[in-house]
Nucleic acid binder design. Structure first.
Lengths: 227, 227
DNA sequence: GGCTGTGAACCGTTTCACAGCA
DNA sequence: TGCTGTGAAACGGTTCACAGCC
């Protein structure tokens, strides 16, 4: 209610921050379809949350809709974008150019969403020097130079499990402060580094739990329960 | 405290369920290293949570360690595995065999963790019929038969954003009740279907927010936005 | 002595219900 | 009238602190 500076949200709860990207996605969808204005009910429906939750979330960023009308799509996009700190492009490196690294390097959706891949790295001599997605794969030894030279703030780790901690250590040493890891383990990093992990098998395991819960007791994996 | 049936946890809070896979990963790591017994402090450290939280989580599954000693690694693995419902293998299909689908199909960590990929599907004629990871890619039209015939309970969607809702509709119609989607949108599905979404750009945006928060105001990614 | 298991306090998040405003 | 913005209530989750047991 005081530090209402256009670039910084005063203090947004973590749970809210975690939902802002979803709101942004939904808003871009509306923008593409030429919708100029939306309501908390409509946007919440698109984002898969309750409308009260959406309004509460937006209220934390000091947002302003128009009572009786709703939210201006374009203005709200600008506002959330500013809150997330993605008005200017963030430079990202990808470490580990296997199948997954390839897929990530070829993904073109980053730019639209505030990110630019400025380096691909690997440790394998058979991969270093090859061109992937128009970019030459470099040796991890060159990380520090690129991170410093290109003001890289984040790294995506797409390396095998047993190489992940070493890769994390390397990017941290190079000066990266945000890590998105696909390796199935919990990385140990210094206090000031922020890590988020994506683990496909873990997600499937959570789905498995719910499948089992739905089924009551019987073998969840194999036989289709009739409900 | 009553339904202590080896296959079902009485009722585990969602937040706890979300952490069980991490505990399981850490335990498997200990098992590989031949560690027979662990403590809540050690395991919590490996999983990146507090020791009180770990103990509380385990208490929901009616778990039993030994006071003054700790937990038997192998027994605890068995217990969590049973709770998650992954004692028997769950069959999974992958829909969308682009770069990401390739990477997912080639990932070998599933089996160890309770899952088996039994079908790859796509809509593109140039992809259908090709062999990926030793499996022939089939037409999405054949989904229903495979899901029914192989008792498939889950689908991984690795399709482009604009094809994702149609793909979701297809797998739901085929009888799948758990979906893991990589598409950057919120899928609309019937009540009885469970969806989890993974969106790389969203994760990066959350990292961007924290980077900005850490920096106070100045240039987090690249160029300091003045405004 | 040491570590687990857990009630109780604490804290953050969600939901409700309505006041405030175009 | 209709929809936002928000206090207040309800809920769930985390942390604390210690009793219970090996």
């Amino acid at each position: 209610m005081d530090r209402d500076d256009a670039t910084t949200g005063p203090d947004v709860p973590p749970a809210t921050v975690g939902r802002l990207p979803r709101y942004l996605r939904a808003l871009h969808g509306l923008l593409e379809r030429g919708v100029p204005t939306t309501s908390s009910a409509e946007l919440a429906g698109l984002a898969g949350v309750g409308s009260a939750q959406l309004r509460k979330d937006l209220s934390f960023l000091g947002s302003f809709g128009t009572r009786g009308v709703g939210y201006d799509v374009e203005a709200l996009i600008g506002f959330i974008t500013a809150t997330l700190g993605i008005e200017s492009v963030h430079r990202v490196v990808i470490v580990g150019i296997g199948d997954l690294g390839h897929a990530l390097a070829n993904y073109t959706g980053y730019t639209r969403r505030g990110f630019e891949v400025v380096g691909l790295f690997d440790t394998s001599p058979t991969v270093i020097g090859t061109t992937v997605a128009g970019d030459v794969v470099r040796d991890v030894a060159e990380l520090a130079g690129v991170v410093a030279g290109e003001s890289v703030s984040m790294a995506i780790l797409a390396v095998p499990r047993d190489a992940a901690q070493a890769a994390a250590d390397a990017v941290v040493a190079a000066g990266v402060t945000g890590i998105l890891s696909f390796a199935p383990l919990t990385l140990q990093v210094p206090e000031h580094v922020d890590v988020r992990g994506i683990d496909v098998a873990s997600e499937l395991q959570i789905l498995a739990f719910h499948a089992q819960a739905r089924a009551g007791l019987p073998a969840a994996g194999t036989v289709a329960p009739a409900i």
